[in-house]
Design a protein around this nucleic acid. Sequence first.
RNA 1: GCCGGUGUAGCUCAGCUGGCAGAGCAACUGUCUUGUAAACAGUAGGUCGUCGGUUCGAAUCCGACCACCGGCUCCA
Length: 621
Amino acid sequence: MTFTAGEATGRKNRASPQSRICNRTCEGMIMPVRPDSDPYYRLRHSAAHVMAQAVLELFPEGKIAIGPPIEDGFYYDFDLPRALTPDDLIEIETRMRRIIAGAHPFVYRVVDPGEARALFRDQPYKLELIDGLARGQDEYGERSEAGTVISTYKHDTFEDLCRGPHLASTDQIPPDGFKLMSVAGAYWRGDSNRPMLQRIYGTAWNSKEELEQYLWRLEEARRRDHRVLGKELDLFSVSEDVGPGLILWHPKGAMIRVIAEDFSRQAHLENGYEWVFSPHIGRAHLWETSGHLHFYKENMYAAMDIEGEEYYAKPMNCPFHIQIYKSHLRSYRDLPKRYAEYGTVYRYERSGVLHGLTRVRGFTQDDAHIFCRADQVEEEISRALDFSLYVLRSFGLSDFTAYLSTRPEKYVGDPADWDMATEALRRAIEAHALPYEVDEGGGAFYGPKIDLKVNDALGREWQLSTIQFDFNLPERFGLEYIAEDSQPRRPYMVHRALLGSMERFFGVLIEHYAGAFPLWLAPVQAVIVPISDEKHGAYAAEVARQLKEAQLRIEVDLSKDRMQAKIRRAQLQKVPYMLIIGDREQAAGAVAVRARSGEDLGAMPLAAFIARARAEIEAKA
RNA sequence: GCCGGUGUAGCUCAGCUGGCAGAGCAACUGUCUUGUAAACAGUAGGUCGUCGGUUCGAAUCCGACCACCGGCUCCA
């Protein structure tokens, strides 16, 4: 029941075995790295040390926390007397270059705990780390395999508690290969009850060229930012008057959604699902029965009073689908039941976490609940996964990783059921030859699950699909079917969402395609460009009529601008085709076709263009 | 929610230490009727996020709030 569909996922927060995930892995700042798996480890770790020295030069009374390498760079956390400014970063960079030029060797030594405490007597965070090390914890306060050797690395005047490894000396850091990127707040040890430190993020590469390439990649990601493209292409907006995290779909964005929903709706019908609808609110009693008012209340909005009765906006759809199941006595012959709905749910998200379309307060899941018998579980899981891959591939997403989450310490249900379900999930993943990771103990208390994440065109990972067992709700709602032996049995229940939420999926699609949607999804498939609005306007209108008749989505640019301006406008709107009409085309009953790629496909009869477009739409290319 | 930053025309952004609010694009009007990514000229457009304060005077300084951006935390 926890479709985290409207939620962000994607980035391992740190080297914890329990992959903690949130969105924007993408920007890639936080992925932890290990010395053995990352060729940049020494460089970035060393850059972090050099930065710490530079910061301490600037703030001799500053306190230092931790400073690991991360994907694409490094950071270091500081406790400083004042907030850092962008100018400070420039100053720190300058000092770093000076330290680098000094060619100071990184010197390793092992110290005993007493020595370490003396060395870092003015550094309370380091003292806490030393205490942790003495108890066999790593720098994040988690259990470590690495024994309790306490060591330091020293270069120039700066000595840091550190297990390394490092470069041989500071001048191995290319002075034009690194850059300090930003300052951000970060809680000491990631604990919101502990002090907020200042974290400086930096990036470091083996050469200026590599750095520039990385910066270009960032620029490219920014260019694809769905929030930017959403505005430029007039796809959606968020209105301050409506409220943050609540999405307004503009006609062009809504067009894409309608196409996606229609496609998916048809596919569901072909795959044995039945469509249902359910309301947006339900009585408090329902949510008490489901347990949401106990375990999910923090994410639910306050109750509304209707004639003295409390109602809640739904954070999930499951209780409603369960009511549909319960509206009849069910026979074993009726199963499986597969109820699907584009269900709009509302979840409270704290203001600081909202992000474009990917983390919102109201969203629509392509939700479904499958009720089945034990002997159907295997088949249903396999079908659900198969279906999910089919749908995602149809949208041009083809690079997947599966995450299997198994039984946590606190759980409900029969361990035998858990084992059976978990194995069914595992077999489904393996049958589809998907790369996968197992998150041992990472399942929800009510059942194991598969999360399917996709890598987009920029290699960024997004969680979309989820397939989850639920051993809790059937129990709470007393779901039954009558088995062959005339006895009531409890059905198995599976939640699943394929695209996740329409909002998030749309955000991912926008970024994946950089706004240049394939023809079948493009809200405007072609713009007709008459060279002269006066001379060719009438023919343009006729062409438009015929294209609309052929079910194509087109616009006519009847502005008084020159053709070049019209083309430019269509290009910027990423319209797949521009159909140029001048004297020659008008005489021949043709259109001159320019593709979004800039390619001039030349003049062709209108019918030829229609045939070409239809084939392309059919292929979802 | 927490730390830091930002908020000026529909969009992108200038506006130095307080002294009559600006540009480009878009829009509108006119001229041009055009051959594959921006014709030319003109017109109009603002409660400078909101509320309060300091000041003779606030876009500018101060405070609170709202929203957004980058992170952190959270996302059973």
